[in-house]
Design a protein around this nucleic acid. Structure first.
Length: 426
RNA sequence: GGAGAGGUGGCCGAGUGGCCUAAGGCGGCAUCCUGCUAAGGUGCUGGGGGCCAAAAGCCCCUCGUGGGUUCGAAUCCCACCCUCUCCGCCA
């Protein structure tokens, strides 16, 4: 959520920053917010003047009653005062709700580092590893997985519809192995605290991270209890300290969690979504950091390196892409995508998205810290990144490590978890 | 799911319509006393918002949340949330 006060004082700068996203609806929303805010402040002046009067007269009534004196004329006067308060309070409530509603629909301002333009302006900032050469004998992971008997998309679809993959045998075990490996890695190598959060969360939490209200149709909702299935562990992790004021000396906070992720992906079915590339349910290990504002730029670089480290450990060639303003997610100030090369389907697959939110989520979720003992609380900065999302990682692993005989070699770090060095057909 | 008890400031805890502008205590900060320490004295104490360029200052809101009654609500009424105890159900 944008800072209303900053918007008021630096309107031109905010407008210019948001314009880089190329979303034409933004200016109208800004106009509306500013107009409502002016109204709101005028109404506050009125209602508070009346409330001050009510407080003062109430005190006099109390004094008179205590002294056993007649207070009826004052009480009569107060009826009118109360009527004014009620009227202005109603208007204030309405205005505040309208401002909040509009503010929640405004995206974050892009970081100055972010290139102008749309997806075509995304910039590859570095690469690692030699992409495995495509060859005619290499199969895409959906064929390979089916032949090895470890991926059964048909039966997944029978149970739940398309986009609900089902893994069997070593395929199932591979999910568990990757989750355990990644969690252990980040805890041991990068000092993140492991968290196992709830998988259903309140609407308020979805709003805090920016998934609601605008993207309600992307998420699964359980109406009987008004809970939402997490689309990413970012939601519970970022909201872990919602409403709290953290002592500055306890920052940064680094959290890592595995959760399944549930996404409706409405309207996404099609060519680009075969196999494990875009599914409704998948597993992911997610990193979340709460940082002091002055440390957050560096934290994004570090967080991205932490996600990259997993690709390296698994021996997957990847590239790091800095997203342009027009391709940025709604709440993101700056994002690096990690894409691994999949030689079977001959594509770069996005396995991680590492983002800096600045104070955008912190304002929505009321995440604050105290810079020094006794100092005023301030909003902190939030970051998150996948490290990694499993399905595309699995796709790339299968495609990269497949042999001509149709078996798949297991990368060394996963062997102890998988209790196997090779996956063979049955 | 049923019955009961409860939710007050950083913490404990008093408070059944107006001297609550929330007692008292603990903790914390400042300061004084003090050879040092301990003990003690005095003062201060959270969050949000408005006026203001800002500060100072003044004002408003905040006793689980949201409504309501009333001239006036921590206090009365309604709904909801959470915690605890017992019962039921259950992996």
């Amino acid at each position: 959520m944008l800072d209303l006060r900053r918007l008021r004082r630096e309107e031109a700068a905010v407008r210019a920053a948001l314009a880089r996203r190329g979303d034409p609806s933004v200016d109208g929303l800004l106009d509306r917010v500013l107009r409502l805010d002016a109204d709101r402040r005028a109404v506050i002046q009125h209602v508070e003047a009346w409330k001050a009067k009510r407080n003062e007269v109430s005190r006099r009534v109390a004094d008179l009653k205590r002294a056993g004196a007649e207070a009826e004329p004052l009480i009569e006067e107060m009826r009118e005062v109360s009527a004014h308060i009620e009227e202005y309070d109603d208007r204030l409530r309405t205005l505040e709700r309208e401002i909040e509603d509009a503010l929640l629909l405004l995206p974050n301002t892009p970081h100055p580092d972010v290139p102008a333009g749309g997806a075509e302006a995304n910039r590859v900032v570095r690469t690692w590893g030699e992409p495995v050469e495509a060859a005619s004998w290499r199969k895409p992971h959906w064929e390979l997985g089916a032949e090895l008997g470890i991926l059964d998309l048909e039966r997944g679809a029978k149970l739940s519809g398309s986009g609900f993959p089902l893994f069997r045998g070593l395929g199932a075990r591979l999910q568990r192995a990757l989750i355990a490996f990644m969690l252990d890695w980040h805890v041991r190598e990068h000092a993140y605290e492991e968290v196992y959060p709830p998988f259903l969360v309140k609407q308020e939490m979805m709003r805090g991270t920016g998934h609601l209200p605008k993207f309600a149709s992307d998420a699964y909702h359980v109406p009987s209890d008004d809970l939402w299935l997490v689309p990413t562990a970012e939601v519970p992790l970022t909201n872990l300290h919602a409403g709290e004021i953290l002592p500055g000396e306890t920052l940064p906070r680094r959290y890592v969690a595995y959760t399944p992720c549930f996404r409706r992906e409405a309207g996404a079915a099609g060519r680009e979504t075969r196999g494990l590339i875009r599914v409704h349910q998948f597993d992911k290990v997610e990193l979340v950091r709460l940082e002091r504002p002055e440390a957050s730029d560096a934290a994004l670089e570090e967080l991205t390196r932490h996600a990259e480290a997993v690709c390296r450990a698994l021996g997957l060639a990847y590239r790091v892409v800095l997203l342009a303003a027009g391709d940025l997610g709604f709440g993101n100030a700056k994002t690096y995508d990690l894409e691994v090369w999949a030689p079977g389907c001959e594509r770069w697959l996005e396995v991680s998205s590492c983002s800096l939110y600045g104070d955008y989520q912190a304002r929505r979720a009321h995440l604050r810290y105290r810079p020094a003992p006794g100092a005023k609380p301030e909003h902190l900065h939030t970051l998150n990144g996948s490290a990694l999302a499993l399905p595309r990682t699995v796709g790339a692993l299968l495609e990269c490590y497949q042999a001509r005989d149709g078996s798949v070699e297991v990368p060394p770090p996963l062997q102890p978890y998988l209790q196997s060095e090779r996956i063979r057909g049955v």
